[in-house]
Simulated scan of single mutants.
Amino acid sequence: MGVQLTFDHAVHFVNKPEQAPEELAGLGIHTVNGGRHESVGTYNALTYFDLRYIEWIGIFDPKLLPPHQDTQRYGLVDTLAGDGYVEGLSRIALRTEQIDELAEQLAAEGNQVIGPVDCSRRRPDGKLLEWKLLFAGLPDEGLPLPFFIQWNDSDEDRRAELTANGTITDHARGPITLDYVAFTVRDLGKTVSRWEKWLHLEAGEAVYDDYWKGKKQVISLGSFQLVFLEPDQEGPAREYLQSRGERPFLVGLNSGQGGSPEQYVNIHGSFYHLK
């Protein structure tokens, strides 16, 4: 039995996070400015769906970025391109309350493990948020494992505070849930078997996705799904794999209303499934 894991957030790099609240309001999605990671030169905006969220992150001072090997862990390595960033989804984070045990578990299974590392961010209202991060994987793993986070505050306290300050609130589009993240991969079987082993979870059967034109498999984390897609025909998913490599390419959002037609929209370099 592995450590209990919950989906926490997806990291999406954008040139100007401060523009995200206005941009996403046009889709009926509530977003707030987050704050700065002062020691590493990044800042963010945040879109919450209960405690699952999307982090729209940018760089306010490239000179403060950590060394190359550290930026690679955070998924920052491919964002720098000329005077701007390569925008798009980069990594996901899974939440745990057993981060030290998880570090031992992943190391025992042959992974290179870094952390837990103490981290913090100061919110615009001045409050200092603190958490621990854990990175694990192998240099040749293809699709990188998620990184792992343990918040200093409990889920109940975080939900109450984020609701009180307006970060978690109703979306104009409806009571949206963040249901899945999909990844483009080159070898479906190899990738899924590695994630099954390291996350101590079991995938469903491989099926064909007619829309994205490729084989896919799903690993479930409770009501949340990790979807792995190996595209085998020309189309947006294959183009994404060729240009961005093995990484998240799609986030599924569900308003549960049934009134609006579902749609796939490209938001700053990656896809969002709105229904």
Rank of each mutant, 00 (worst) to 15 (best):
M1V: 10
L5A: 02
A10R: 05
P17I: 05
P21Y: 02
P21E: 10
E23H: 09
I29P: 02
H30C: 03
T31W: 00
G34V: 06
H37T: 03
E38L: 12
E38D: 15
S39V: 09
T42E: 15
Y43R: 11
N44D: 09
Y48S: 12
I54T: 01
E55P: 09
E55S: 09
I57W: 01
F60L: 08
K63C: 03
Q69C: 04
Q72S: 14
Q72G: 03
G75S: 00
V77T: 11
D78A: 08
D83K: 08
S90F: 06
R91V: 14
L94P: 14
D100N: 10
A107T: 02
G110Q: 01
V113R: 03
D125F: 01
K127F: 14
W131K: 07
L134Y: 08
G137V: 11
P144F: 04
P144N: 02
W151K: 14
D157K: 13
R158S: 12
A160G: 07
L162P: 11
T167Q: 12
P175S: 15
P175L: 13
T177A: 08
V181S: 00
A182R: 10
F183I: 08
T184Y: 03
D187L: 09
L188K: 05
L199Q: 05
L199G: 08
E202N: 08
Y211D: 01
Y211M: 12
V218H: 01
V227Q: 02
L229Y: 01
Q233L: 05
P236Y: 01
Q242Y: 02
R244H: 15
R244A: 03
R247N: 05
L250P: 06
G256H: 01
Q257S: 13
Q257A: 09
P261N: 00
Y264E: 07
V265A: 00
N266G: 11
I267P: 04
H268S: 11
S270A: 12
